[in-house]
């Protein structure tokens, strides 16, 4: 088992899992306290259109995912600001449209059949070095942005009307938060795939919420949980020789239901 940790692909896998764990702990906390898990799922699935675009026009899939994620998060921001009570339908339509476009563009691409499963469920064991650089860069951007605007994001989540009276640029911050969700989707897709992004963003912050007196503590506890889930998931996938992404989610989901059952039996 130990010699596995010294293999090159394992280094990359652990690094990718750590990056995803950090990003999901921070952004997932705001996703959970603002109850916008559905929006983050919508952005992730719409991003599949980016895979189709990239393959069809012949550029790197992660670049396609990044561009479409950013576009999708801006549209989601606009929809949730301007048409709040119809937002769920709009998000659902974008969710489906992105997936459909992705599949159609892949169908139209002659002779090339990209491994669909790796984008749907992640391919953490085969993360290329270049992608790790992009993921690290995005993680730094997310960390700095949330560090600088932490109290503003908290105020926005707690009481947006009051925040506006105190001169906090609520509209700008809402768009910025959506953009951060879009960027974190890019980081996480390599690890668990776009279908499972929602799980990694919501499970550990949700568990952490019970034990947290502040959003900052919630991020810290979620980070610890995410790293444990990633490590156990990777071990499970190696032992059973099954896909890594779904294994991580399986561990996280078991922990989620475990905590729910223990908490409700008290």
């Amino acid at each position: 088992m130990l010699e596995l940790l010294h293999m090159h692909f394992m280094h990359n896998a652990l690094l990718a899992a750590c990056l995803a764990g950090i990003v999901c702990a921070i952004i997932g906390t705001f996703v959970v306290i603002n109850r916008i898990v559905f929006i983050s799922g919508g952005i992730a699935h719409t991003a599949y259109g980016g895979v189709g675009l990239a393959v069809y026009f012949g550029f790197a899939p992660l670049l396609g995912i990044t561009l479409v994620s950013i576009l999708a998060s801006l549209v989601m921001a606009w929809v949730s600001l301007k048409a709040r009570n119809r937002a769920d339908t709009m998000i659902g339509v974008l969710w489906a449209l992105g997936m459909a476009l992705g599949v159609i563009l892949l169908d139209l691409t002659p002779g090339y059949h990209v491994d669909l499963m790796s984008f749907l469920f992640g391919s953490i064991m085969t993360v290329p070095g270049n992608d790790l650089w992009l993921m690290s860069g995005l993680a730094v951007i997310i960390l700095c942005t949330v560090g600088y605007f932490y109290h503003d994001f908290v105020a926005l989540s707690f009481d947006p009307e009051f925040a506006r009276v105190r001169g906090i640029p609520v509209g700008f911050l809402h768009v910025l938060l959506m953009l951060m969700i879009g960027l974190s989707v890019v980081v996480v897709i390599q690890v668990v795939g776009l279908i499972l992004v929602i799980a990694l963003m919501s499970i550990s912050p949700f568990i952490a919420e019970r034990f947290s007196p502040s959003p900052l503590r919630m991020m810290g506890i979620s980070l610890g949980l995410n790293l444990i889930f990633a490590l156990l998931g990777l071990l499970l996938s190696i032992c059973l020789n099954v896909s890594a992404g779904p294994s991580i989610i399986l561990v996280a989901s078991l922990a989620f239901f475990g905590v729910q059952i223990v908490a409700s039996s008290r």
Partner: peptide, 8 residues
């Protein structure tokens, strides 16, 4: 207006 699911 207050979102009490924010731990604070």
């Amino acid at each position: 207006e207050i979102n009490s699911s924010v731990p604070m």
